[in-house]
């Protein structure tokens, strides 16, 4: 499982360019499902027929895309200008490595040396408009041979196992969800399962509504990597989730209010199977549930998340047990659906 997580998190999948992730998932799940469909926006929808009678449609949803960059112009000296795709705090960008395009051209986001700065300059955050990516060429012509306008770039960040059962990687949001869905597809269920690996969540939940419209599910479970602010200097009431305390169940966020019966069902499943869980405290942000639950005539929807510190950065951190427990909770939930 750790190898697959490594493969998934290191793959390139900025919103709108999820091909690499989609290919990995397609290969993993092909033996596990009855049908795979890729729709007009790039969502991968896997169907696994239920074994029971009087089956319902259960949609599991995780997004394949991650935040990253897109190249918008090339300067005369060969430096690349870019814009962020999805929500990135520009303050994490300086002195980081990136890979650009299909060929993963390596580049760096540098800044003029401290010696050359006025002390006052260091007080101000650098704006994205001032930044550039250096790929080691010295002219526009040279750069154009390697990079096209519109090429996507990702953080260069290997997955690392460290500390006490912890994982550092980029794109844990939401490759943890993708992994959960892949693992869930390994079991047999009474009900029809639709595992939807969606695109473009990070730029406005754009894939999920389209997938839900196609599937027309009775129930939907969104599996996410969510914010976790249980760190130094934060008041306890501001914690969104706590790392190591199990999967987080959402009551409400900026995009949806979870179906109450499903929340109770998730809690009951956790209690019955001895799987730890927590209630997510923060109510900001949003995820694919926002589009799924208002699809067509409405869909009973809930959200289960793996707590991830430093989300949307090259070094997100999570606890492996939280992921394992998330997988268990989702599997048992689907098994327990009547």
């Amino acid at each position: 499982m750790v190898e697959l997580l490594k493969k998934l998190t290191e793959a390139s999948g900025v919103s709108g360019n999820e091909d690499e992730v989609r290919d990995i998932i397609r290969e993993e799940i092909t033996p596990l499902v009855d049908k795979i469909y890729i729709d007009g926006i790039g969502n991968l929808i896997a169907y696994k027929k239920g074994k029971g009678e009087d089956v319902k449609k259960i949609m599991l949803c995780a997004h394949m895309d991650e935040v990253g960059f897109i190249i918008t112009s090339i300067s005369d000296n060969g430096m690349l200008k870019f814009k962020p795709v999805g929500g990135i705090d520009p303050r994490v960008l300086i002195s980081k490595r990136v890979y650009i395009g299909k060929d993963k051209i390596p580049g760096v986001l540098g800044i003029k040396a401290i010696h050359l700065q006025e002390p006052s300059e260091r007080k101000n955050a650098v704006k994205v408009e001032q930044m550039y990516i250096d790929i080691g060429v010295s002219s526009k012509e040279e750069a154009e041979k390697l990079v096209n306008l519109g090429d996507y770039a990702i953080f260069a960040s290997d997955m690392v196992e460290f500390g006490d059962n912890k994982i550092k990687a980029k794109a844990l949001d939401d490759r943890v969800g993708c992994l959960t869905l892949i693992e869930a597809l390994k079991e047999e269920y009474d009900h029809d399962l639709y595992a939807c690996f969606t695109v473009q969540e990070e730029v406005g939940l754009r894939g999920a509504g389209v997938a839900a419209y196609h599937v027309e599910p009775d129930i939907a479970v969104v599996v996410e990597g969510t914010t976790c602010s249980d760190v130094s200097g934060v008041d306890e009431h501001m914690y969104s989730t706590i790392m190591g305390s199990g999967p987080a169940i959402t009551i409400m966020d900026g995009s949806s209010i979870s179906n109450k019966a499903l929340i109770e069902k998730l809690k009951a499943t956790g209690d019955a199977k001895g799987i730890p869980y927590q209630i997510k405290k923060g109510t900001t942000g949003g995820n694919d549930a926002g589009k799924i639950h208002i699809s067509r005539e409405g869909v009973a929807t809930c959200v289960v998340s793996v707590p991830c510190r430093y989300i949307h950065s090259p070094s997100s951190v999570m606890d492996m047990d939280d992921l394992k427990n998330t997988i268990e909770l989702v599997k048992e939930f689907v098994k327990g659906c009547e």
Partner: peptide
């Protein structure tokens, strides 16, 4: 107003609905 946290002294933190 949705309760998000109950502190040690019984005060409730909340966020908006």
């Amino acid at each position: 107003l949705m309760v998000t946290h109950i502190d040690d002294n019984g005060f409730l933190r909340f966020s908006n609905v």
